[in-house]
Simulated scan of single mutants.
Amino acid sequence: MKILERWSSISAERRALIAQVARYGIVGLGITLVQAAIYWILATWAHWHSQIANGAGYGVAVMLGYVLHNRITFRDAKRPTSTAAHATRGVKFVAVSLLSLALNALWVWLCVSWRGWPTWTPIPGMLFITPGIVFVLNRQWVFGER
């Protein structure tokens, strides 16, 4: 009962943010796991260069990310639906995704190339640090209300 009482005492705006963060966590974790799995399989089993494997995973993650975040994570945002607005959102999403790629490339370089650690060691940064930064940018700049 106390949980329900606490939940109902939270403002509607705050509850919406909590729900959005939860959706982002679920969708983003799934997308990130796909990206990380592609990276790890290609780097470890196919013996691709770690940065090329990371780029391949990134390409798949960007496509999945735009569709799923637009339809699920940020579905409640009131924003223009015109073709031009959609194209602008797409360009912004790619820009944020490029930052995500750069951050993940940094984790790969720091862990694998610079430190010589195993190919799995960049994955914690990919799973926890990069998504937090990307959420804020997507919420405020890409999918935010206009």
Rank of each mutant, 00 (worst) to 15 (best):
L98Y: 01
V27I: 03
L98N: 04
L103F: 09
L98W: 00
G144F: 09
H69T: 13
R23I: 11
F143P: 10
T83C: 12
P131L: 01
L64D: 03
A16M: 04
F74T: 13
L99Y: 05
L106S: 13
W45C: 08
T32M: 07
C111F: 14
I38N: 05
K92W: 10
Q35L: 10
A105Q: 15
N138Q: 12
K78N: 14
W40G: 03
I133E: 01
W120T: 07
G30L: 07
T32D: 03
S97I: 08
R115F: 15
Q51H: 15
M1E: 12
N54V: 00
F74K: 04
A22H: 01
S50H: 15
S97C: 07
W48P: 04
T73Y: 02
V91P: 05
R75Y: 05
I18G: 09
G90C: 00
H86Y: 11
L106N: 02
V136R: 09
R79G: 08
T73K: 03
F128W: 09
S11V: 04
K92I: 06
S9N: 12
Q20W: 01
R14H: 15
V94R: 00
F93L: 12
A46P: 00
F93P: 06
L17E: 12
L98A: 05
I129W: 01
V91W: 06
A105L: 14
P118N: 08
A85R: 03
I38A: 08
T73S: 04
A84V: 12
A95V: 14
V136E: 07
C111M: 15
V27E: 00
V136L: 14
G28W: 01
L106H: 06
W107N: 11
K92R: 15
H49V: 10
R79S: 03
M63Q: 10
R89K: 13
C111N: 14
Y24K: 00
A22W: 01
V21Y: 04
I123S: 04
A84N: 11
T83M: 13
I133P: 02
R14K: 14
W120K: 07
N104F: 09
G57K: 04
F135R: 03
F143C: 07
V108S: 07
L137I: 07
M63R: 06
A95R: 09
S100K: 14
M1C: 10
R79I: 12
V94I: 12
L98G: 05
R146N: 15
A36T: 10
N54T: 06
L127A: 13
W7N: 06
L4G: 15
G28I: 08
G57C: 07
A61Q: 03
A95H: 06
L42I: 10
V134H: 11
S50C: 15
N70E: 11
M1G: 15
L33K: 09
T83F: 12
A95L: 08
A102V: 09
G90Q: 00
A53C: 08
A105W: 04
P122C: 00
G65W: 00
V108W: 05
A43W: 03
L33Y: 08
L98F: 01
K78P: 06
G55Y: 01
K2C: 09
Q51V: 06
H86L: 12
G132V: 08
Y66Q: 08
R139W: 13
G28K: 05
I123T: 02
A53D: 02
F143E: 09
A43V: 01
V134N: 07
L4Y: 10
Q20N: 04
N138S: 06
